[in-house]
């Protein structure tokens, strides 16, 4: 029950894109087409779950015992960057089909603040191992959901007549605001 609550909280109530504002650069960048958005969402779910678990392990078993919590930022970014590289090599060798789908998105994930942000949030909220795992998945699924919903809306905006100054990023942000408003309704659920 606790985990179900956590999943609902991370996907809907504290949606990482629309309520926490993490990972907004890829949110605007890769949401122009549904295909790209879906690829990016899958890649983020894949990497984020692994990164959430590994950084939790590093933090709890390595940094805390030696009282090195202040090194969190640099240690995490190092681990995430290496992880992404590792996943890329691993996929290329053992799952070429999956690599063909996700490959071009993987390098983008290193500097995706959603991944890094979730790892830091897991620590800040003092989650245990299982909680970190579930929360990482929930946040990533929330990222994917919001991204895919937004891509669907943006494909429609493409056909609408938008006043010149509002075009491109500007109308996308206002749309994201409306989408965020609909997620706002989940507030108070958990």
């Amino acid at each position: 029950m606790e985990y179900i609550e956590l999943i609902v909280a991370t996907i809907f109530v504290n949606n990482i894109l629309l309520a926490q504002f993490l990972g907004n650069c890829p949110f605007l960048g890769t949401s122009k087409k549904m295909e790209t958005a879906a690829g990016m969402a899958m890649a983020v779910i894949f990497v984020l779950v692994m990164a959430g678990v590994i950084t939790w392990v590093i933090y709890a078993w390595l940094l805390v015992p030696y009282k090195l919590e202040f090194l969190r930022t640099i240690a995490f970014i190092l681990v995430i960057a290496s992880l992404v590289q590792f996943v890329e090599m691993f996929l290329k060798k053992s799952m070429p089909a999956l690599y063909a789908g996700l490959g071009i998105f993987l390098p983008l994930i290193t500097t995706n603040c959603a991944v890094f942000g979730v790892c830091v949030l897991n620590i800040d909220k003092e989650f245990g191992f299982m909680q970190s795992l579930v929360a990482s998945f929930g946040y990533a699924a929330g990222f994917g959901l919001a991204l895919i919903l937004f891509a669907g809306v943006r494909e429609r905006i493409l056909l609408a007549r938008v006043p010149k100054p509002l075009q491109d990023t500007s109308i996308a942000l206002v749309t994201a605001g409306v989408l965020s408003l609909s997620f706002y309704a989940f507030r108070g659920m958990v």
């Binding site: 590093i58 030696y66 681990v79 290496s82 090599m89 060798k93 053992s94």
Partner: peptide, 27 residues
């Protein structure tokens, strides 16, 4: 000293894993 050692350790571990991986998963 511990801080430096830990950072070096993490860096070295990542480096070793990646270089081993690049050999193991070499295409």
């Amino acid at each position: 000293v511990i801080a430096i050692l830990v950072m070096l350790g993490i860096g070295a571990a990542c480096g070793i894993i990646l270089s081993v991986a690049s050999k193991v998963f070499y295409v």
